[in-house]
């Protein structure tokens, strides 16, 4: 059987690849802010949004997006006014989101709500209309995260400086928060709400091991995200395992390989590019070796 023989397989693959491209492009800003877990918090809140959708008999994806965006904005406002540590804000999001979702689902008379598919993803149910929606939303998100990266980089790298530079810091922060919420709900279909944050963060963590700059980290993370999504979907199709989990396991495997590889690489070339740091242990012997090689 060919992979693209069926529309649903094709839709699932294309949707997953877009999500793989999208998630790290937002995640790079969250990692830079040291808010890696915020995507998870937004995901939990989106669960409440899904429940609201079922309760109101409207599109759960749409209500998830609205509720997740509201949650992201509330966290951003709390962060800005410094009323609450990021840690506590996250805890409230996590527990409030899950409890709200479970509570609201209990109110619904329908016993057949496919909660598992929202929690862990169900890419095979991606319809052609879903794919169009994913494509449009991806284009908007990428326009913001890639096209607006100079400004988003500035507010994440040094918010105070950005303020003195006259940038609309609050508006940009809210834009980033809403973009993260949109990304979470788009990715919900593929990897599920509980694993979406992994696809936002893990490729970035991998890329920053080897990249030297922000733009290169972002680009590499997006490529790694696409790779993890593609290979995870393929593995899921061939081995009949859960696609969301397979994608995240692939992303983590690449992280482990790159982390191990780059530490070996660094040990082989001790402190060559860091003339101002202290010489690594054992590096004092290195010049002699280089000298003797050159002499011979």
């Amino acid at each position: 059987m060919s992979l693209f023989e069926y529309d649903f397989l094709r839709n699932a693959f294309l949707g997953a690849l877009l999500v793989g491209l999208l998630a790290p492009s937002v995640g790079v800003y969250l990692v830079q802010r040291r808010l890696s877990l915020i995507g998870d918090g937004i995901g939990h809140v989106a669960l409440t949004g899904v429940a609201v959708g079922f309760l109101l008999n409207s599109s759960p994806v749409l209500t998830a997006m609205v509720v997740a965006a509201l949650g992201a904005i509330v966290v951003e406002v709390l962060r800005e006014y410094g009323r609450m540590s990021g840690d506590i804000a996250l805890a409230l999001l996590f527990y409030g989101g899950i409890a709200g979702g479970v509570l609201l689902i209990g109110l619904d008379d329908d016993d057949n709500i496919p909660m598992m598919s929202y929690l862990f993803g169900s890419p095979l149910t991606t319809s052609s209309q879903d794919l169009i929606a994913i494509t449009v939303l991806s284009a908007v998100v990428l326009l913001i995260t890639v096209g607006g990266r100079s400004w988003l980089f500035a507010i994440c790298q040094d918010e105070e400086y950005a303020r003195v530079a006259g940038l609309p810091v609050r508006a940009l922060n809210l834009l980033l928060a809403v973009t993260a919420a949109v990304t979470v709900t788009v990715a919900m279909r593929t990897v599920g709400l509980l694993l979406v944050s992994a696809l936002m963060v893990v490729p970035v963590a991998t890329a920053q091991q080897v990249a030297r700059g922000f733009s290169s980290t972002m680009l590499l993370a997006m490529l790694l995200g696409v790779f993890a999504s593609g290979s995870g979907m393929y593995a899921s199709w061939r081995l009949d395992v859960a696609p969301g989990a397979a994608i995240v396991v692939f992303a983590l495997l690449v992280f482990v390989v790159v982390a191990a590889g780059s530490s070996v690489f660094r040990r082989l070339r001790p402190a060559r590019q860091l003339p101002h740091s202290f010489p690594a242990r054992g590096a004092t012997a290195a010049p002699k070796v280089v000298g003797s090689l050159r002499d011979s």
Binding site: Q32, S150, Q157, E159, E160, A162, A165, G213
Partner: peptide, 20 residues
């Protein structure tokens, strides 16, 4: 700034001074 979880090149940081 403290937000330095992701690497940034010297040129990237300097270029952000141009945004104003």
């Amino acid at each position: 700034g403290a937000g330095s979880g992701v690497p940034a090149t010297v040129r990237e940081v300097v270029a952000s001074g141009r945004l104003a």
